[in-house]
Simulated scan of single mutants.
Amino acid sequence: MPFTLATWNINSVRLREGLVQKLLGEETPDILCLQEIKTPIDKFPTEGFAAMGYRHLVARGQKGYNGVAILSKLPITDAGDSDYAALGHARHVAARLENGVVIHNFYVPAGGDIPDREENVKFGQKLDFLTDMRDAFRADRPQRAILVGDLNIAPREDDVWNHKALLKIVSHTPIEVQHLSDAQEAGAWVDVTRKDIPEGRLYSWWSYRAADWDAADKGRRLDHVWATPDIAGAAHGSRILRSARGWDQPSDHVPVFATFDL
């Protein structure tokens, strides 16, 4: 069963419902995983998406912040969620396809501005979240699974616009990269995007603070698609929709795509 999956931090699904519909209409992914939906699920704008064929929804929401959702043309069932680091936040949800593949949708905490857990509680929460992910994968190694989302870390030197300049900036510090690597290795996850696009600079986020984000091009690859080794070989066609950053009233993130033949 071939299908195309996209992941996108939408930064408020109600505010940007029109952009989601634009993406669904123009790119027609079979599954769209959204992060930072910023709404309780009873206020999620399901009707417009259902009218476009996306009638299946598995989601966890919160009023005003966080929240993750999986929209699908294909039938999916709720496969639960986990409260990593016991934050009480809606940052993870999972859905199961009819072929048994489980899709995990994550929104890892951003971590604040100071990369020191003693000075910045949010940074400590981010590291604890990643540690809990690692421990969960070690305790129950996933199989036939896909992990996507805004992981809020750009791990490789070519996942940021300037490696040296960002070594002390949250999202690219060595301790964050190591924590993400530990979680990845614990589940033997394959970075599908970099499997398909192994070389060159690759970004999925550009700050709102840039006067001209496109010209400055100071991006980071914070959004990821991973798969377990038993299905990673079936993944192909990865791409990042850079043009979405230039849409009207955009998110600061853009969609990341991958196709799976399963």
Rank of each mutant, 00 (worst) to 15 (best):
P2G: 01
L5P: 10
A6K: 13
W8R: 10
W8K: 08
S12V: 14
L15Y: 11
E17F: 00
Q21L: 15
G25N: 14
E27I: 13
D30L: 02
C33G: 15
C33A: 14
I37F: 09
D42P: 08
D42V: 05
K43F: 06
P45S: 07
P45D: 04
F49D: 12
A51C: 04
M52E: 00
R55T: 15
H56A: 07
H56P: 14
V58W: 14
V58K: 05
V58N: 12
R60Q: 14
Q62H: 03
K63V: 10
Y65H: 13
N66S: 15
V68K: 13
K73L: 05
L74H: 12
P75A: 10
I76Q: 03
T77R: 04
S82P: 01
Y84I: 09
A90L: 07
R91V: 11
H92I: 03
E98P: 06
F106V: 11
V108Q: 07
A110Q: 13
A110W: 04
G112V: 01
D113P: 00
R117F: 06
E119P: 03
N120D: 04
N120L: 04
K122D: 03
Q125H: 07
L127I: 07
D128A: 15
T131G: 06
D132G: 08
F137T: 00
Q143T: 09
A145N: 01
I146K: 11
I146C: 01
V148F: 03
L151Y: 12
P155D: 13
R156D: 12
V160F: 02
W161Y: 11
W161G: 06
L167F: 01
L167Y: 03
K168R: 11
I169A: 14
P174Y: 02
V177H: 08
Q178F: 13
H179W: 14
S181Q: 14
S181Y: 10
D182M: 07
A183L: 06
E185G: 09
E185W: 08
D191P: 06
T193D: 01
R194D: 03
G200M: 08
R201V: 09
Y203D: 02
W206H: 12
R209E: 11
A211P: 00
D212C: 07
W213L: 08
W213C: 05
W213Q: 10
A215Q: 12
L222S: 09
D223N: 07
W226F: 15
W226R: 03
P229L: 01
G233E: 06
A235I: 02
S238E: 08
R239Y: 01
I240R: 04
R245I: 02
P250D: 09
D252R: 05
V254H: 03
V254Q: 02
V256H: 02
F257E: 02
F260G: 03
L262M: 12
